[in-house]
Structure formats: C-alpha cells, structure tokens
C-alpha cells in the first residue's frame, strides 16, 4: 500500500481518538479541527520562520526540532483547550456541539486573516524531517501507540472510571463526589493535546498548511470516524479513522461520484451499525481471546 495513504490513515485514527476522548465523558465536542489547525499552523510558522530550529536550504529539518514542535503544538493546543474548556464545558448537549463549531470557525477565520499566516494560500515549503512519506509512518505510529496506551490505561485508572461514570449519568456521578467539571476538562485537554500534536505531524507531512485544514466539514468527518467505528472503546475511532480516511482514496476509480458515495456511507452507517463497527459485544469476545485462562470473577467485576 502507498505509504502516504497509510500516514493519512494513521492521522485519521489519531484525530478519531481526539474526538473520542471528550465523547467518553458524554460530551459531544467538535473542537478537534480547531486544535489540529492550531498545532499545524504553529509547526508551519516555527519551521519556516524561526531559523534556530535549523531548517536547511535543501528543505530538510532536524529531527529534534520536529520533536520540540510536537511538544509545543500539543502544549499550545492544550493551553487553548484549558481556557476555552472552562467556558464551553458548562454547556450541555447540542449547545456544546454548536459552541465548539463556533470555535472551529473562529480559528479558521483567524488563520485566514492574521497577517502572518499566509492568507488563503497559507504557508508552503514546510521543511521535511524525513526524506520520504514512508518516514512519517514511524512517528505517526508512535503517536497512535502512545494515545492507545493512554486510553487503555484509562480503563483501569480512577480518571477513566470517573469519565465512564460522567458519561453514564452526570448528575449521579456528581452526587457520588466526582468533580465532573474537572473530569470533562481533563478529557477535553487530552483531546486537544493529541489534536495539536497530530496537526504538527500533518503540517510537515503535507508540506503546506492553510485555513482549510480545520473546517466544519472536517469536524463532521472526524465525528463520523468515532460514530461509525464505535464510541465505546478507543479501538472504534481508530478503526473508523483508518477505514474512512482510506475510503475516498479507494473510491478514486469511481471519479466524481466518490464523495457522493462517501456521503452515502456516512448517511447510512448509523442505521446499519448503530453501535459502530467495534461493538461492546465484539470487545468482550476480543477480551476473552486475549485472556484465554479466564480469571475467575473477572467477568462479574466488570460494571
């Protein structure tokens, strides 16, 4: 398979996890493209305008600088999420979704109009830390494994259990002494850090960056990763992100109709797979496979 497509699919999976994290606390936010755009713009600006990072004339870029950007992009997005989250997470349901759409649009218009982000054309000639597209496979896979490991750890950590409790019944969780605001904010910030870092990776991988990278459309597609993949486990958005990113490319032979077909998949998916592709039943079977001895009582201790 084409390594460039594989990298895109991994980026899709990462963004899927980013949308999944707040959803795991029952909060529908569509802010991921805003944080993705912030991370990407930061990387594009730093690597092309800040000589200290060591971009060379032949378009190559030192790896340590790239790792520094990853950290900075994640941190900046996380900081923004911390500020915005305190405000928007007081909202519920569809109000929260619309407020985060508003955030995405504000960030998009800002990137389009700020004097130093290159306007509609954007920033191009972003230097390359890797000689070819295949080089990006390693950092993308590493990020995905890291994100997956964190999500997996969450299942047994107090924070993860608190997230599940808030998702099931926020009022009940609050009554049990869970600081629901803090739990929701933590998930929101984690989602933003991941999206920001993914933006840094994507900016270098795509070589150009502009305001179109984080739009309302992309918010919907990313949400579809989670819904069609399954929102009960982080494996769902990963599968959804991989498949739905590859789908338009695989449909390329159909020509102009490919985006219509893609829309039809998103339109009919929720009715065909109401719980997504990775259903709770499937997870249980997977869990049994991974644990053939079957600890006694393990089944019963599951909430």
């Amino acid at each position: 398979m084409d390594p460039a497509l594989l990298v895109q699919m991994l980026i899709g999976a990462l963004l899927g996890i980013s949308v999944y994290l707040p959803l795991a606390t029952g909060q529908l936010t569509l802010a991921t493209p805003a944080f993705y755009a912030v991370g990407g713009t930061l990387a594009a600006l730093l690597s092309t305008r800040w000589p200290v990072l060591g971009a060379r004339i032949d378009g190559s870029f030192p790896l340590p600088s790239f790792l520094l950007e990853l950290a900075l992009g994640g941190a900046l997005a996380g900081l923004l999420a911390l500020l915005v989250g305190r405000i928007v997470l007081r909202l519920q349901g569809i109000y929260l979704a619309i407020a985060t759409i508003a955030l995405v649009e504000i960030v998009r218009v800002a990137i389009l109009n700020l004097p130093f982000t290159g306007g509609a054309v954007g920033i191009f000639g972003i230097p390359q830390p890797f000689p070819s597209a295949a080089g990006y496979l390693l950092p993308a896979l590493a990020l995905l494994l890291l994100a997956g490991w964190v999500c997996q750890r969450l299942e047994v950590m107090a924070l993860g259990r608190a997230m599940a409790a808030v998702r099931e019944d926020e009022l009940a969780a609050r009554c049990m002494g869970i600081d629901t605001t803090q739990v929701k904010l933590t998930a929101f910030v984690m989602s933003a850090v991941l999206a920001g870092g993914t933006g840094v990776l994507a900016a270098h991988f795509l070589n150009t960056w502009n305001a179109r990278q984080g739009s309302f459309d992309s918010a919907v597609i990313m949400l579809a990763f989670v819904i069609l993949g399954g929102s009960r486990s982080w494996l769902g958005p990963v599968l959804g992100g991989l498949v739905l990113t590859a789908l338009p490319e695989l449909l390329r032979p159909v020509g102009d109709a490919r985006l219509v077909l893609f829309g039809l998949v998103i339109l009919s998916g929720p009715a065909l797979f109401p719980q997504g592709l990775v259903t709770p039943g499937l997870l249980e079977r997977l869990g049994r496979l991974g644990d053939p001895a079957g600890r006694p009582g393990a089944e019963g201790s599951r909430p």
Binding site: L28, G93, I94, A97, V220, L223, A224, I227, L228, D256, A257, L259, V260, F262, G263, L264, V265, I266, L267, S268, G269, P270, A271, P274
Partner: peptide, 21 residues
C-alpha cells in the same frame, strides 16, 4: 440524537457533492 447529527450531515454531503457532480 447524536446519530441524527451524522446522518443529516451525511445527507448534506451527498447533496452538495451531487450538485458538484
């Protein structure tokens, strides 16, 4: 209700791309 969000957006995507086609 979350699922309606996806399906209606999917319908919009189909319409816009049909127009484009």
């Amino acid at each position: 209700p979350l699922l309606y969000l996806i399906t209606s957006l999917g319908a919009g995507l189909v319409l816009v791309n049909l127009l484009q086609m």
